[in-house]
Design a protein around this nucleic acid. Structure first.
Lengths: 127, 127
DNA sequence: TTAATCTTTCCAGTAACTGGAAGGTCAAGG
DNA sequence: CCTTGACCTTCCAGTTACTGGAAAGATTAA
């Protein structure tokens, strides 16, 4: 697969896919005879995993750590489990925060009558 | 309230609180006689709202738009409701993605036996 | 074969902070 | 009263994580 197909499948811009290999976050992909990068399903899954992690505030270093869980053969399952469990708790915290943001906005939507009176009760709260 | 109290309450670094006023995302706070910025509860709520929105991938322009919902007196409730509803759908999409990330990591945790065998079934999936 | 649409590398620019220097302010303790 | 330490100020430079664009080569469809 060429880079644009892989990028689309992973939900990332082509530029970003190149960038992740440049900084060594993922391995450099193999190349075709003419120098085009070629991708397989495994690398796409990995890129999609990174995209999701990045979207939820894990920085590149943390993504490296998450991917390292899979790639470091010297790391024991207990270590993997411990680090991943910590990240899982961080994700749960993010889920709670996202729910709070959702509730804030829901409140706004509900408190607006939706007609053309330029009044919103939530102005008092956030104003 | 001085800036560090407000920043703590909103969950933001002091630097970022200053920055948001510098770029006009929030109004410039009032100053004490000696030039210290002073904050009230309303501005803290607004900063916390921005923090949550930023944490979940809304950029500064989108935060401006969200805050504009409350501040533009010329905007009708119907407009507010329409824009906020669109953002709500984006948040729900983020919640689904976050769940997928959670599930990915959960799978990793579950598939590791947790003892000291350096084997993880998920290596095959992501590797 | 030619035009459109890929792809490459390289380098510069952007968004959103973030760190650090240099200096002023304030509250507590001696 | 004085000092010490933790605040605060502005300003400017640096960082992270991309992102855009130029110049040039490769591939495909008509």
């Amino acid at each position: 697969m060429n880079i644009s197909v892989a990028a689309d499948a992973a939900g990332l811009p082509v530029k970003t896919v190149r960038y992740y290999a440049d900084i060594g976050l993922v391995a450099a992909p193999s190349r075709s005879a003419s120098g085009y990068r070629t991708y397989d399903d495994a690398s796409i899954r990995k890129l999609a995993f990174i995209r999701r992690a990045r979207e939820f505030g894990f920085n590149i270093g943390e993504c490296r750590e998450l991917l390292g869980l899979y790639e470091d053969q010297n790391r024991s399952s207990a270590d993997v489990k411990q680090i991943a469990s910590k990240k899982l708790e961080e994700i749960r915290a993010k889920q709670r925060e996202l729910q709070a943001l959702h509730d804030d906005l829901s409140h706004l939507v509900d408190s607006c009558s939706g007609d053309h009176q330029p009044e919103c009760p939530i102005i008092d709260y956030l104003g």
